[in-house]
């Protein structure tokens, strides 16, 4: 029988085939509990992963798409150094544009500190060049060296670069969340394998009789696979629902809470927990199926 047909048969069920293997109350409850607990953890790992992912994205987009080159030089040299710096910037890979700020823009920048009537032209204020980089970014250290050589008064100020390590940390955290989900899936598979093996061993007599009257391995396996798949599905649905509810009622503190209160789902991401129960069912299906075929070959 094809695998697709097998899964359909497992879900459709066969009341009579189900009765052939006696119910196993204790393993059943343990499997339900395990699936629920694992789904609960998986939803939190998912939330963590998505939240840190969002954080990394937000910081990343705010980050140094723009930097500033500040040129402070004796009055007569400013213009020459500005031109030199522009030449350097325009030939720097990773820099999309370099634009000299005009007096009005510079005044606007300084206005909060010095008021609107600042006579900027008469002040030895540095000249600013706005630098926009492309997605790949540029080599800041290399650019600094070249600027120093061509325009000694130029200082590259890439003020938002300090967030780079933070973004790396957030990315790492997102990866850890994904790893956690994989580990949870693996642990679920391991526990369901153990439970299925215990159930199969407890039913060795029954399995022996079934083999004697001509039952094929797939038939016997299916009785167990169906049970464990359904238990994993139901348990994981309960666990995922509880975890989602727990996340939904986390207190909100707006932006002040930052990362802590950002640990939730946003928009369609609330649909993600729905993927956990089917995932648990697939894991249980394979774990039980493999355990069943292995045990059946050993038992009879």
């Amino acid at each position: 029988m094809s695998l697709g047909g097998d899964i359909v048969a497992v879900l459709r069920g066969d009341a009579q085939a189900d009765r052939v293997v006696p119910p196993t109350g204790f393993t059943a409850r343990l499997t339900l509990f395990t699936a629920a607990a694992m789904a609960f953890l998986a939803v939190f790992a998912l939330a963590l992963s998505l939240a840190t992912g969002r954080l990394a994205d937000r910081w990343g987009s705010e980050l140094a798409r723009s930097a500033t080159v500040r040129i402070s030089a004796p009055a007569g040299q400013v213009e020459a150094q500005v031109q030199a710096a522009l030449r350097v910037l325009r030939t720097t890979p990773g820099v999309t544009s370099a634009r000299v700020l005009d007096a009005a823009e510079q005044r606007a920048l300084l206005e909060p500190w010095f008021g609107p009537d600042l006579p900027i032209e008469s002040l030895p204020a540095p000249q600013l060049i706005d630098v926009v980089e492309d997605g790949r970014g540029y080599d800041a250290d290399g650019l600094r060296l070249r600027l120093t050589a061509e325009a000694p008064g130029a200082v590259l100020d890439d003020h938002t670069r300090w967030r780079r390590p933070l973004i790396r940390a957030a990315d790492r955290l997102r990866a850890l969340g994904v790893v956690s989900i994989l580990l949870i899936a693996g642990a679920t598979a391991a526990m369901i394998t153990l439970a299925a093996q215990a159930a199969l061993a407890a039913n060795a007599q029954v399995i022996g009789v079934l083999r004697l009257v001509g039952a094929r391995d797939v038939y016997i396996a299916r009785a167990f696979v169906r049970r464990f798949t359904l238990r994993a599905l139901v348990g994981a649905a309960a666990g995922a629902a509880l975890a989602t509810a727990a996340i939904a009622i986390l207190p909100r503190a707006g932006d002040a809470g930052g990362f802590l209160t950002g640990l939730g789902f946003q928009g369609w991401h609330w649909l993600w927990p729905l993927a956990i129960p089917p995932l648990a069912a697939v894991v249980a299906f394979w774990a039980t199926r493999l355990a069943a075929f292995r045990s059946l070959r050993e038992l009879t």
Binding site: Q16, V20, L210, V213, G214, A215, R216
Partner: peptide
């Protein structure tokens, strides 16, 4: 009926 049941 078990042989019938297990043979589907």
């Amino acid at each position: 009926a078990l042989p019938l049941i297990v043979s589907g």
